[in-house]
């Protein structure tokens, strides 16, 4: 019977060890205080495991990031904190420190399905210090632009306008043509109409004036901004708007084609089911982009397109980033380099 007792003890001890390893491990990891484990999941599976993170000014927050399903990313809106990849089953540690009290937005930075942009949470930072300065009123509000009203270009060029060709006419342009305010608050079509009306430009053909407009637009975009805009567009916008801007991105397949007359100045918030959504407009159609001003585009980006499925990027992008994206967007309608003039299509 001594052996039997020994055998029983062996079984019990081994089973206890088997139970003990995970329990002790769990207990020990619980003591890693001040570390917040943040699980990323597709919005359909619950989104971020923590939606609001409380923090104090100057006190570091230790985050342990992991994903329960697919690749996600972690980034803090309007901050210099680099975006981190979150891989399924693996852990990424990071530390955040905030100098200014206020509300920050953390968000998923890698596309994880049609509802990817819903993966957003808040970091509430309290404590001493100057709060984040409030944003100046966006231009579209100052100008009173109804960004939900349908906007189509009154006039469009016979062929894609080229900034390269437009450079030839740069010396003939009036001074106001290069003013920042004119650029920001007018659509290319509006500027074309104004230039066309100038008698001193009557020697230029319609297409020459369009080339001049393209050149003007290029003057407001630095190469760095275009590059940054291109990256931002690829990672954030292209999944819906399409890599070539045609509004045919992978996330909007099967949605009805956009039609300006359907565009409601809606207050209808769309459902996660995607009911009632339409595909985004085709940026390569000159009627679309040449009819909208940078101010309006900025408004759309900041506020999102109510009822259209377009997310709001106000808490995510800095105004430089938004301007960069806008500069990049116009390249869908203008050629930047000199293009040989062929038959118009």
């Amino acid at each position: 019977m001594k052996k039997e007792g020994l055998a029983r003890w062996i079984v019990i001890l081994l089973v206890l060890a088997a139970v003990g390893v995970p329990l002790v491990g769990w207990w020990l990891s619980k003591d890693l205080a001040a570390t917040l484990e943040l699980h990323a999941r597709m919005p359909e599976n619950g989104g971020w495991s923590v939606n609001t993170i409380q923090a104090k000014v100057g006190q570091p927050i230790h985050l342990r990031l992991t994903s329960d399903d697919v690749v996600h990313g972690f980034a803090v809106g309007r901050s210099d904190h680099p975006a981190l990849d979150i891989l399924p089953g693996e852990f990424t540690d990071t530390t955040l420190t905030f100098d200014q009290p206020g509300k920050y937005t953390f968000y998923c930075s890698r596309w994880c399905g049609a509802n990817h942009w819903r993966m957003r949470g808040t970091i509430e930072v309290t404590g001493e210090g100057d709060p984040i300065p409030p944003d100046p009123q966006p231009l579209f509000l100052k100008l009173g632009i109804d960004i939900d009203a349908p906007q189509t270009a009154e006039v469009t060029p016979g062929m894609t306008a080229s900034a390269g060709r437009g450079a030839l006419f740069a010396s003939q342009l009036p001074a106001y043509a290069l003013e920042k305010d004119i650029y920001l608050s007018n659509s290319p079509a509006k500027v074309w109409l104004r230039l066309r009306a100038e008698t001193f430009l009557s020697s230029l053909s319609d297409d020459d004036v369009w080339d001049a407009v393209a050149w003007i637009w290029q003057q407001h975009a630095t190469p760095e901004a275009l590059k940054s805009g291109q990256e931002l567009y690829a990672t954030n916008c292209a999944a819906c708007h399409g890599e070539s801007g045609k509004g045919d991105g992978v996330m909007v397949r099967g949605l009805p084609v956009w039609d300006p007359s359907l565009h409601t100045s809606g207050d209808v918030t769309h459902q996660p089911t995607g009911e009632g959504l339409v595909s985004p407009p085709d940026f390569t159609d000159p009627k679309v982009l040449l009819g909208v001003s940078p101010a309006l585009l900025e408004g759309k980006i900041i506020r999102g397109g109510m009822g259209t499925g377009m997310p709001y990027w106000g808490p995510i992008f800095t105004s430089e980033q938004i301007q960069a994206v806008i500069s990049y967007l116009y390249t869908f309608s203008f050629h930047s380099q000199e293009q040989p003039r062929g038959p118009s299509n």
């Binding site: 597709m42 697919v70 690749v71 890698r110 596309w111 994880c112 399905g113 049609a114 990817h116 690829a234 990672t235 916008c237 292209a238 999944a239 819906c240 890599e243 991105g249 992978v250 996330m251 397949r253």
Partner: peptide, 23 residues
């Protein structure tokens, strides 16, 4: 990629690609 980040790894060729939706 049409929904989440996917990869493409071909047996025998050590050829690999990774694509985000939209890229």
């Amino acid at each position: 990629s049409t929904d989440v980040v996917h990869g493409f790894s071909l047996d025998g060729y050590s050829f690999e690609l990774k694509a985000d939706p939209g890229q």
